[in-house]
Write a protein that binds this DNA or RNA. Structure first.
Lengths: 205, 205
DNA sequence: TTTGCATTTAACCAAACGGTTAAACCATTC
DNA sequence: GAATGGTTTAACCGTTTGGTTAAATGCAAA
Protein backbone atom coordinates (compact mmCIF):
# COMPACT_ATOMS: atom_id res chain seq x y z
CA UNK A 1 0.00 0.00 0.00
CA UNK A 2 2.90 2.32 0.84
CA UNK A 3 4.77 1.81 -2.40
CA UNK A 4 1.56 2.01 -4.39
CA UNK A 5 0.66 5.41 -2.98
CA UNK A 6 4.19 6.72 -3.48
CA UNK A 7 4.41 5.88 -7.15
CA UNK A 8 0.90 7.16 -7.64
CA UNK A 9 1.72 10.62 -6.33
CA UNK A 10 5.06 10.70 -8.10
CA UNK A 11 3.43 9.78 -11.37
CA UNK A 12 0.62 12.28 -10.91
CA UNK A 13 3.35 14.91 -10.60
CA UNK A 14 5.25 13.58 -13.62
CA UNK A 15 2.10 13.60 -15.74
CA UNK A 16 1.31 17.16 -14.70
CA UNK A 17 4.93 18.21 -15.27
CA UNK A 18 4.89 16.75 -18.78
CA UNK A 19 1.74 18.66 -19.58
CA UNK A 20 2.93 22.01 -18.23
CA UNK A 21 6.54 21.80 -19.45
CA UNK A 22 5.41 20.77 -22.93
CA UNK A 23 3.02 23.70 -23.07
CA UNK A 24 5.21 26.45 -21.61
CA UNK A 25 8.79 25.15 -21.73
CA UNK A 26 11.34 25.22 -18.90
CA UNK A 27 11.30 28.99 -18.33
CA UNK A 28 7.60 29.52 -18.96
CA UNK A 29 6.38 26.72 -16.69
CA UNK A 30 5.37 27.55 -13.11
CA UNK A 31 5.81 25.13 -10.21
CA UNK A 32 2.47 26.20 -8.74
CA UNK A 33 0.82 25.45 -12.09
CA UNK A 34 2.29 21.94 -12.06
CA UNK A 35 1.16 21.39 -8.48
CA UNK A 36 -2.37 22.59 -9.29
CA UNK A 37 -2.54 20.39 -12.37
CA UNK A 38 -1.44 17.39 -10.31
CA UNK A 39 -3.87 18.38 -7.54
CA UNK A 40 -1.22 18.28 -4.79
CA UNK A 41 0.72 20.61 -2.53
CA UNK A 42 3.57 22.53 -4.12
CA UNK A 43 6.13 21.30 -1.58
CA UNK A 44 5.61 17.75 -2.79
CA UNK A 45 7.22 18.69 -6.09
CA UNK A 46 10.44 19.39 -4.19
CA UNK A 47 10.00 16.31 -2.02
CA UNK A 48 9.98 14.01 -5.05
CA UNK A 49 12.17 16.04 -7.44
CA UNK A 50 14.52 18.36 -5.53
CA UNK A 51 14.03 21.36 -7.84
CA UNK A 52 12.58 22.64 -11.10
CA UNK A 53 15.64 21.82 -13.23
CA UNK A 54 15.86 18.22 -12.00
CA UNK A 55 12.13 17.77 -12.57
CA UNK A 56 12.44 19.17 -16.06
CA UNK A 57 15.38 16.85 -16.75
CA UNK A 58 13.28 13.82 -15.83
CA UNK A 59 10.47 14.95 -18.11
CA UNK A 60 12.76 15.92 -20.97
CA UNK A 61 14.86 12.75 -20.78
CA UNK A 62 11.67 10.69 -20.79
CA UNK A 63 10.48 12.52 -23.90
CA UNK A 64 13.83 12.08 -25.66
CA UNK A 65 13.96 8.38 -24.81
CA UNK A 66 10.44 7.79 -26.08
CA UNK A 67 10.93 9.88 -29.21
CA UNK A 68 14.25 8.52 -30.38
CA UNK A 69 13.38 4.95 -29.45
CA UNK A 70 10.28 5.12 -31.64
CA UNK A 71 11.76 7.16 -34.46
CA UNK A 72 14.72 4.83 -34.78
CA UNK A 73 12.79 1.60 -35.34
CA UNK A 74 13.74 0.74 -38.88
CA UNK A 75 13.33 -2.98 -38.43
CA UNK A 76 13.71 -6.25 -40.22
CA UNK A 77 16.70 -6.11 -42.55
CA UNK A 78 15.42 -9.14 -44.47
CA UNK A 79 12.39 -7.26 -45.81
CA UNK A 80 12.46 -5.36 -49.12
CA UNK A 81 13.36 -1.69 -48.63
CA UNK A 82 9.93 -0.35 -49.57
CA UNK A 83 8.23 -2.67 -47.12
CA UNK A 84 10.65 -1.51 -44.43
CA UNK A 85 9.85 2.13 -45.19
CA UNK A 86 6.09 1.38 -45.22
CA UNK A 87 6.32 -0.17 -41.77
CA UNK A 88 8.47 2.74 -40.63
CA UNK A 89 5.73 5.13 -41.79
CA UNK A 90 3.02 3.16 -39.97
CA UNK A 91 5.13 3.19 -36.85
CA UNK A 92 6.06 6.86 -36.65
CA UNK A 93 2.66 8.17 -37.79
CA UNK A 94 0.98 6.13 -35.05
CA UNK A 95 3.50 7.43 -32.55
CA UNK A 96 3.32 11.07 -33.63
CA UNK A 97 -0.48 11.05 -33.61
CA UNK A 98 -0.41 9.73 -30.05
CA UNK A 99 2.09 12.40 -28.88
CA UNK A 100 1.55 15.34 -31.24
CA UNK A 101 3.24 17.90 -28.97
CA UNK A 102 6.40 15.92 -28.29
CA UNK A 103 8.29 16.86 -31.46
CA UNK A 104 7.87 20.58 -30.89
CA UNK A 105 8.77 20.23 -27.23
CA UNK A 106 12.07 18.58 -28.09
CA UNK A 107 12.90 20.97 -30.92
CA UNK A 108 12.08 24.04 -28.82
CA UNK A 109 14.11 23.03 -25.80
CA UNK A 110 17.21 21.89 -27.64
CA UNK A 111 17.21 25.08 -29.71
CA UNK A 112 17.07 27.10 -26.47
CA UNK A 113 19.74 24.99 -24.78
CA UNK A 114 21.77 23.16 -27.45
CA UNK A 115 24.19 21.65 -24.91
CA UNK A 116 21.35 19.42 -23.66
CA UNK A 117 21.46 17.60 -26.94
CA UNK A 118 25.04 16.46 -26.51
CA UNK A 119 24.44 15.62 -22.86
CA UNK A 120 21.21 13.70 -23.22
CA UNK A 121 20.69 12.60 -26.80
CA UNK A 122 24.12 11.51 -27.95
CA UNK A 123 24.32 8.86 -25.19
CA UNK A 124 21.03 7.18 -26.05
CA UNK A 125 21.22 7.73 -29.78
CA UNK A 126 23.22 5.18 -31.67
CA UNK A 127 22.27 7.26 -34.71
CA UNK A 128 18.80 8.28 -35.74
CA UNK A 129 18.41 8.25 -39.49
CA UNK A 130 21.65 6.36 -39.81
CA UNK A 131 20.05 3.06 -40.61
CA UNK A 132 17.47 4.79 -42.76
CA UNK A 133 19.88 6.68 -44.99
CA UNK A 134 22.45 3.89 -45.12
CA UNK A 135 19.88 1.30 -46.11
CA UNK A 136 18.56 3.68 -48.75
CA UNK A 137 21.95 4.33 -50.30
CA UNK A 138 22.76 0.64 -50.38
CA UNK A 139 19.57 -0.07 -52.30
CA UNK A 140 20.35 2.77 -54.70
CA UNK A 141 23.84 1.42 -55.38
CA UNK A 142 22.40 -2.01 -56.20
CA UNK A 143 19.97 -0.31 -58.57
CA UNK A 144 16.82 -1.64 -56.91
CA UNK A 145 15.33 1.83 -56.54
CA UNK A 146 15.62 5.11 -58.41
CA UNK A 147 18.59 7.34 -57.82
CA UNK A 148 17.29 9.83 -55.28
CA UNK A 149 18.95 12.35 -52.98
CA UNK A 150 18.92 10.26 -49.81
CA UNK A 151 19.14 13.25 -47.47
CA UNK A 152 16.31 15.14 -49.15
CA UNK A 153 14.24 11.97 -49.31
CA UNK A 154 14.64 11.40 -45.59
CA UNK A 155 13.82 15.03 -44.77
CA UNK A 156 10.78 15.03 -47.05
CA UNK A 157 9.41 11.80 -45.64
CA UNK A 158 9.80 13.05 -42.08
CA UNK A 159 8.17 16.33 -43.05
CA UNK A 160 5.16 14.52 -44.50
CA UNK A 161 4.75 12.41 -41.37
CA UNK A 162 5.49 15.03 -38.73
CA UNK A 163 4.13 18.43 -39.74
CA UNK A 164 0.45 17.47 -40.08
CA UNK A 165 0.40 17.05 -36.28
CA UNK A 166 2.57 20.04 -35.42
CA UNK A 167 0.68 22.34 -37.76
CA UNK A 168 -2.74 21.04 -36.75
CA UNK A 169 -3.80 24.34 -35.09
CA UNK A 170 -3.11 26.16 -38.36
CA UNK A 171 -4.66 23.51 -40.57
CA UNK A 172 -7.81 23.37 -38.47
CA UNK A 173 -8.52 27.06 -38.97
CA UNK A 174 -7.38 27.13 -42.58
CA UNK A 175 -9.67 24.25 -43.45
CA UNK A 176 -12.65 25.62 -41.56
CA UNK A 177 -12.38 28.82 -43.59
CA UNK A 178 -12.66 26.55 -46.59
CA UNK A 179 -15.77 24.61 -45.70
CA UNK A 180 -13.57 21.67 -44.76
CA UNK A 181 -13.01 19.99 -41.41
CA UNK A 182 -9.62 18.85 -40.12
CA UNK A 183 -11.16 16.15 -37.93
CA UNK A 184 -13.16 14.82 -40.85
CA UNK A 185 -10.96 15.44 -43.87
CA UNK A 186 -7.65 14.53 -42.26
CA UNK A 187 -6.86 11.12 -40.76
CA UNK A 188 -3.74 9.22 -39.83
CA UNK A 189 -4.71 6.51 -42.31
CA UNK A 190 -4.94 9.02 -45.15
CA UNK A 191 -1.58 10.39 -44.08
CA UNK A 192 0.03 6.95 -44.09
CA UNK A 193 -1.35 6.39 -47.55
CA UNK A 194 -0.07 9.76 -48.77
CA UNK A 195 3.38 9.09 -47.36
CA UNK A 196 3.51 5.60 -48.87
CA UNK A 197 2.36 7.00 -52.19
CA UNK A 198 5.16 9.54 -52.01
CA UNK A 199 7.66 6.73 -51.39
CA UNK A 200 6.25 4.68 -54.24
CA UNK A 201 6.34 7.58 -56.68
CA UNK A 202 9.79 8.75 -55.61
CA UNK A 203 11.65 5.45 -55.33
CA UNK A 204 9.41 3.85 -57.95
CA UNK A 205 10.67 1.54 -60.75
CA UNK B 1 16.43 64.36 -35.08
CA UNK B 2 13.80 63.87 -32.37
CA UNK B 3 11.49 61.68 -34.38
CA UNK B 4 14.39 59.74 -35.81
CA UNK B 5 15.75 58.85 -32.41
CA UNK B 6 12.29 57.89 -31.14
CA UNK B 7 11.57 55.37 -33.85
CA UNK B 8 15.08 54.04 -33.61
CA UNK B 9 14.69 53.19 -29.91
CA UNK B 10 11.19 51.85 -30.41
CA UNK B 11 12.40 49.59 -33.20
CA UNK B 12 15.42 48.41 -31.24
CA UNK B 13 12.95 47.32 -28.56
CA UNK B 14 10.63 45.66 -31.08
CA UNK B 15 13.51 43.74 -32.64
CA UNK B 16 14.69 42.54 -29.24
CA UNK B 17 11.12 41.67 -28.24
CA UNK B 18 10.65 39.58 -31.38
CA UNK B 19 13.83 37.69 -30.65
CA UNK B 20 13.06 36.97 -27.00
CA UNK B 21 9.32 36.27 -27.39
CA UNK B 22 9.96 33.91 -30.31
CA UNK B 23 12.53 32.02 -28.27
CA UNK B 24 10.73 31.82 -24.93
CA UNK B 25 7.07 32.61 -25.61
CA UNK B 26 4.88 35.07 -23.69
CA UNK B 27 5.26 33.44 -20.27
CA UNK B 28 8.89 32.40 -20.64
CA UNK B 29 10.16 35.78 -21.86
CA UNK B 30 11.63 38.22 -19.30
CA UNK B 31 11.34 41.99 -19.64
CA UNK B 32 14.90 42.43 -18.36
CA UNK B 33 16.09 40.00 -21.04
CA UNK B 34 14.38 42.08 -23.74
CA UNK B 35 15.87 45.29 -22.33
CA UNK B 36 19.36 43.78 -22.24
CA UNK B 37 19.00 42.45 -25.79
CA UNK B 38 17.92 45.91 -26.97
CA UNK B 39 20.70 47.51 -24.92
CA UNK B 40 18.40 49.97 -23.16
CA UNK B 41 16.90 50.64 -19.76
CA UNK B 42 14.05 48.39 -18.69
CA UNK B 43 11.70 51.30 -17.93
CA UNK B 44 11.79 52.27 -21.60
CA UNK B 45 9.91 49.09 -22.45
CA UNK B 46 6.98 50.42 -20.42
CA UNK B 47 7.42 53.92 -21.77
CA UNK B 48 6.93 52.74 -25.36
CA UNK B 49 4.65 49.72 -24.76
CA UNK B 50 2.71 50.08 -21.50
CA UNK B 51 3.17 46.48 -20.37
CA UNK B 52 4.32 43.00 -21.33
CA UNK B 53 1.01 41.87 -22.81
CA UNK B 54 0.66 44.93 -25.04
CA UNK B 55 4.25 44.50 -26.20
CA UNK B 56 3.66 40.85 -26.96
CA UNK B 57 0.50 41.75 -28.88
CA UNK B 58 2.47 44.12 -31.12
CA UNK B 59 5.08 41.44 -31.82
CA UNK B 60 2.55 38.67 -32.32
CA UNK B 61 0.27 40.72 -34.56
CA UNK B 62 3.29 41.66 -36.65
CA UNK B 63 4.23 38.02 -37.01
CA UNK B 64 0.68 37.00 -37.94
CA UNK B 65 0.40 39.78 -40.50
CA UNK B 66 3.70 38.84 -42.13
CA UNK B 67 3.00 35.11 -42.05
CA UNK B 68 -0.52 35.10 -43.44
CA UNK B 69 0.21 37.81 -45.97
CA UNK B 70 3.04 35.72 -47.43
CA UNK B 71 1.37 32.33 -47.09
CA UNK B 72 -1.76 33.55 -48.83
CA UNK B 73 -0.12 34.75 -52.03
CA UNK B 74 -1.54 32.36 -54.58
CA UNK B 75 -1.32 34.77 -57.44
CA UNK B 76 -2.14 35.13 -61.07
CA UNK B 77 -5.38 33.32 -61.90
CA UNK B 78 -4.55 33.33 -65.59
CA UNK B 79 -1.59 30.97 -65.16
CA UNK B 80 -1.93 27.18 -65.39
CA UNK B 81 -2.51 25.60 -61.97
CA UNK B 82 0.87 23.86 -61.81
CA UNK B 83 2.70 27.07 -62.60
CA UNK B 84 0.70 28.81 -59.87
CA UNK B 85 1.66 26.12 -57.38
CA UNK B 86 5.31 26.25 -58.45
CA UNK B 87 5.40 29.99 -57.82
CA UNK B 88 3.61 29.47 -54.53
CA UNK B 89 6.33 27.00 -53.52
CA UNK B 90 9.11 29.42 -54.48
CA UNK B 91 7.39 32.13 -52.51
CA UNK B 92 6.74 30.31 -49.24
CA UNK B 93 10.06 28.43 -49.19
CA UNK B 94 11.93 31.72 -49.58
CA UNK B 95 9.80 33.23 -46.84
CA UNK B 96 10.10 30.29 -44.43
CA UNK B 97 13.87 30.09 -44.90
CA UNK B 98 14.13 33.77 -44.02
CA UNK B 99 11.97 33.43 -40.88
CA UNK B 100 12.43 29.79 -39.80
CA UNK B 101 11.18 30.37 -36.23
CA UNK B 102 8.00 32.21 -37.12
CA UNK B 103 5.81 29.18 -37.86
CA UNK B 104 6.55 27.56 -34.52
CA UNK B 105 6.06 30.85 -32.69
CA UNK B 106 2.59 31.26 -34.13
CA UNK B 107 1.59 27.63 -33.61
CA UNK B 108 2.86 27.59 -30.01
CA UNK B 109 1.14 30.78 -28.94
CA UNK B 110 -2.22 30.09 -30.53
CA UNK B 111 -2.26 26.59 -29.03
CA UNK B 112 -1.61 28.14 -25.59
CA UNK B 113 -4.19 30.86 -26.08
CA UNK B 114 -6.64 29.80 -28.82
CA UNK B 115 -8.84 32.88 -28.37
CA UNK B 116 -6.04 34.99 -29.84
CA UNK B 117 -6.65 33.31 -33.15
CA UNK B 118 -10.21 34.51 -33.41
CA UNK B 119 -9.26 37.96 -32.16
CA UNK B 120 -6.23 38.54 -34.35
CA UNK B 121 -6.23 36.15 -37.30
CA UNK B 122 -9.84 36.02 -38.39
CA UNK B 123 -9.89 39.80 -39.02
CA UNK B 124 -6.86 39.82 -41.32
CA UNK B 125 -7.43 36.42 -42.85
CA UNK B 126 -9.86 36.37 -45.74
CA UNK B 127 -9.10 32.65 -45.78
CA UNK B 128 -5.70 31.04 -45.95
CA UNK B 129 -5.70 27.95 -48.13
CA UNK B 130 -9.10 28.95 -49.46
CA UNK B 131 -7.85 30.02 -52.84
CA UNK B 132 -5.44 27.11 -52.93
CA UNK B 133 -7.98 24.37 -52.28
CA UNK B 134 -10.73 26.00 -54.33
CA UNK B 135 -8.45 26.44 -57.34
CA UNK B 136 -7.31 22.86 -57.00
CA UNK B 137 -10.82 21.42 -56.88
CA UNK B 138 -11.88 23.46 -59.88
CA UNK B 139 -8.99 22.05 -61.91
CA UNK B 140 -9.86 18.53 -60.77
CA UNK B 141 -13.49 18.95 -61.83
CA UNK B 142 -12.38 20.08 -65.31
CA UNK B 143 -10.14 17.01 -65.48
CA UNK B 144 -6.93 18.93 -66.06
CA UNK B 145 -5.18 17.22 -63.16
CA UNK B 146 -5.44 13.86 -61.45
CA UNK B 147 -8.19 13.29 -58.92
CA UNK B 148 -6.43 13.93 -55.62
CA UNK B 149 -7.63 14.53 -52.09
CA UNK B 150 -7.37 18.32 -52.09
CA UNK B 151 -7.11 18.61 -48.30
CA UNK B 152 -4.37 16.00 -48.00
CA UNK B 153 -2.55 17.51 -50.96
CA UNK B 154 -2.54 20.92 -49.34
CA UNK B 155 -1.38 19.53 -45.99
CA UNK B 156 1.34 17.45 -47.62
CA UNK B 157 2.66 20.33 -49.68
CA UNK B 158 2.78 22.61 -46.65
CA UNK B 159 4.50 19.87 -44.66
CA UNK B 160 7.19 19.48 -47.31
CA UNK B 161 7.83 23.23 -47.41
CA UNK B 162 7.59 24.00 -43.70
CA UNK B 163 9.03 21.19 -41.59
CA UNK B 164 12.57 21.19 -43.02
CA UNK B 165 13.06 24.58 -41.29
CA UNK B 166 11.20 23.77 -38.09
CA UNK B 167 12.95 20.42 -37.67
CA UNK B 168 16.38 21.76 -38.62
CA UNK B 169 17.84 21.22 -35.11
CA UNK B 170 16.87 17.55 -35.30
CA UNK B 171 17.96 17.09 -38.90
CA UNK B 172 21.34 18.69 -38.23
CA UNK B 173 22.20 16.19 -35.53
CA UNK B 174 20.65 13.23 -37.32
CA UNK B 175 22.63 13.94 -40.45
CA UNK B 176 25.90 14.57 -38.65
CA UNK B 177 25.59 11.10 -37.06
CA UNK B 178 25.37 9.87 -40.61
CA UNK B 179 28.42 11.49 -42.11
CA UNK B 180 26.16 14.05 -43.77
CA UNK B 181 25.91 17.80 -43.25
CA UNK B 182 22.65 19.73 -43.11
CA UNK B 183 24.28 22.95 -44.32
CA UNK B 184 25.82 21.13 -47.27
CA UNK B 185 23.29 18.42 -48.14
CA UNK B 186 20.16 20.50 -47.61
CA UNK B 187 19.33 23.68 -49.51
CA UNK B 188 16.22 25.71 -50.21
CA UNK B 189 16.72 25.10 -53.93
CA UNK B 190 16.76 21.35 -53.43
CA UNK B 191 13.65 21.70 -51.30
CA UNK B 192 11.83 23.71 -53.95
CA UNK B 193 12.73 21.06 -56.50
CA UNK B 194 11.53 18.26 -54.21
CA UNK B 195 8.24 20.02 -53.59
CA UNK B 196 7.71 20.72 -57.29
CA UNK B 197 8.54 17.12 -58.08
CA UNK B 198 5.95 16.04 -55.55
CA UNK B 199 3.37 18.27 -57.23
CA UNK B 200 4.29 16.95 -60.67
CA UNK B 201 4.10 13.32 -59.58
CA UNK B 202 0.89 13.78 -57.59
CA UNK B 203 -1.14 15.98 -59.94
CA UNK B 204 0.62 14.52 -62.99
CA UNK B 205 -1.12 13.63 -66.28
C1' DT C 1 20.26 81.61 -21.88
C1' DT C 2 16.25 79.99 -20.61
C1' DT C 3 12.08 77.61 -21.05
C1' DG C 4 9.51 73.53 -22.33
C1' DC C 5 8.93 68.88 -23.51
C1' DA C 6 10.04 64.33 -24.89
C1' DT C 7 13.27 60.83 -23.55
C1' DT C 8 16.15 58.16 -20.42
C1' DT C 9 17.67 56.57 -16.02
C1' DA C 10 18.30 54.69 -11.15
C1' DA C 11 15.80 53.57 -7.38
C1' DC C 12 12.05 51.60 -5.78
C1' DC C 13 7.59 48.67 -5.02
C1' DA C 14 4.25 44.87 -4.51
C1' DA C 15 3.37 40.47 -6.25
C1' DA C 16 4.84 36.17 -7.93
C1' DC C 17 8.43 33.10 -8.10
C1' DG C 18 11.28 28.75 -6.67
C1' DG C 19 12.46 26.70 -2.65
C1' DT C 20 12.66 25.42 2.68
C1' DT C 21 11.00 24.03 7.09
C1' DA C 22 8.74 22.36 11.04
C1' DA C 23 4.82 20.38 12.26
C1' DA C 24 0.94 17.34 11.17
C1' DC C 25 -0.66 13.18 9.20
C1' DC C 26 -1.08 8.28 8.58
C1' DA C 27 -0.21 3.51 7.93
C1' DT C 28 2.64 -0.09 9.74
C1' DT C 29 5.42 -2.56 13.39
C1' DC C 30 6.29 -3.91 17.92
C1' DG D 1 -1.32 2.06 22.00
C1' DA D 2 3.18 3.75 21.61
C1' DA D 3 6.94 4.22 18.50
C1' DT D 4 8.65 4.44 13.80
C1' DG D 5 9.27 6.50 9.38
C1' DG D 6 7.56 7.81 5.02
C1' DT D 7 4.27 11.35 3.28
C1' DT D 8 1.70 15.72 3.15
C1' DT D 9 0.76 20.36 4.48
C1' DA D 10 0.65 25.50 5.71
C1' DA D 11 3.53 28.98 6.65
C1' DC D 12 7.38 31.09 5.55
C1' DC D 13 11.93 32.96 3.14
C1' DG D 14 14.92 35.34 -0.14
C1' DT D 15 15.02 36.46 -4.94
C1' DT D 16 13.18 37.63 -9.25
C1' DT D 17 9.49 39.40 -11.69
C1' DG D 18 6.59 43.09 -14.08
C1' DG D 19 5.71 47.64 -13.31
C1' DT D 20 6.07 52.70 -11.28
C1' DT D 21 8.12 57.04 -10.13
C1' DA D 22 10.66 61.09 -9.58
C1' DA D 23 14.58 62.99 -10.98
C1' DA D 24 18.03 63.64 -14.66
C1' DT D 25 19.18 64.32 -19.46
C1' DG D 26 19.12 66.30 -23.97
C1' DC D 27 17.36 68.86 -27.52
C1' DA D 28 14.66 72.50 -29.88
C1' DA D 29 12.17 76.84 -29.81
C1' DA D 30 11.76 81.49 -27.73
Amino acid sequence: MKQLKDTSTEEKILEAAKEVFMKYGLYGARMQDIADTAGINKALLHYYFRNKEKMFDKVFEGALQKYFTQMDVFGDTTLPIKERIFRYIDNIVNFLSEYPQMTMFIIKEISINPEMFKEKVQPLKKGRGVRFIQALEEEISTGKIKKVDSVMFMINLHSLCTYPFIGAPLFKHALKANGKDYEKDFSTEKLKQSAKNFVELTLGK
